[in-house]
């Protein structure tokens, strides 16, 4: 555990909680892609199956349980409790175009051809692209609520901090995991355009809206 890893986890946690609170307080999930949230629930479920097979630490177990619990709570709020506010017409990204290739890639490129390892690999690949339906939705509507941009910033920052964590671990622990690193780079790159808009607009007090 190093400072990048810890702040990465906390940034991830902050993102998840910001989104839950935003939906809960406003009683609305307008502008939020339910598809991205379903993908994140799948990501956590397939990655954290090792909760059932191995114990690493209290920290590890509690974070995993919180992430999974919050992911399903978010999906529940979007598709059940505040379903009437869900903007399904704008959430039109075809997720099968992500899940199918990612599933194939996980079977082909992994560290070990075993059930849990393939699911872990699948979750790493899927996470790297799971935000695309949300970004697609924003590009379609041309705008995002400020609180939604805070959520996206924390979510993007988390993987960027993990990249620093992996650089740290490479130098100080001679450890690296090529699958996680490549997927993490892809994931972070997908946020770059958004980071630019966040810094140049949202942090200067303007709403994030895209030119028509």
């Amino acid at each position: 555990m190093n400072v990048f890893r810890l702040t990465g986890d906390l940034s991830h946690l902050a993102a998840i909680i910001i989104l839950l609170l935003k939906i809960w307080k406003s009683r609305s999930c307008a502008g939020i892609s339910g598809k991205s949230q379903i993908l994140f629930a799948i990501v956590f479920t397939t990655r954290y199956l090792d909760l059932l097979t191995s114990f690493i630490s209290i920290y590890n177990t509690s974070m995993k349980v919180i992430y999974i619990g919050c992911a399903y709570a978010t999906v529940y709020l979007i598709y059940m409790k505040f379903r009437a506010t869900y903007d399904g017409n704008h959430d039109s990204f075809r997720v099968e175009f992500l899940v199918v290739p990612v599933g194939g890639l996980a079977v082909l490129v992994n560290h070990d051809f075993s059930f849990l390892e393939i699911l872990w690999t699948f979750s790493i690949y899927l996470e790297s692209v799971a935000i695309l339906p949300q970004l697609f939705m924003i590009s379609k509507t041309g705008e995002a609520e400020t609180i939604t941009t805070h959520y996206l910033f924390c979510l993007g920052l988390y993987r960027a901090l993990y990249l620093l964590n992996w650089i740290w671990r490479f130098y100080f622990e001679s450890f690296f995991d090529m699958i996680a690193i490549v997927a993490g780079v892809v994931q972070t790159v997908l946020y770059c355009d958004f980071f630019y808009l966040y810094i140049t607009k949202v942090l200067k007090g303007k709403k994030l809206s895209l030119p028509a």
Partner: peptide, 10 residues
């Protein structure tokens, strides 16, 4: 297996 070490990450 070296990659098992990574499983402490979230």
């Amino acid at each position: 297996k070296g990659f098992d070490k990574n499983k402490d990450e979230l």
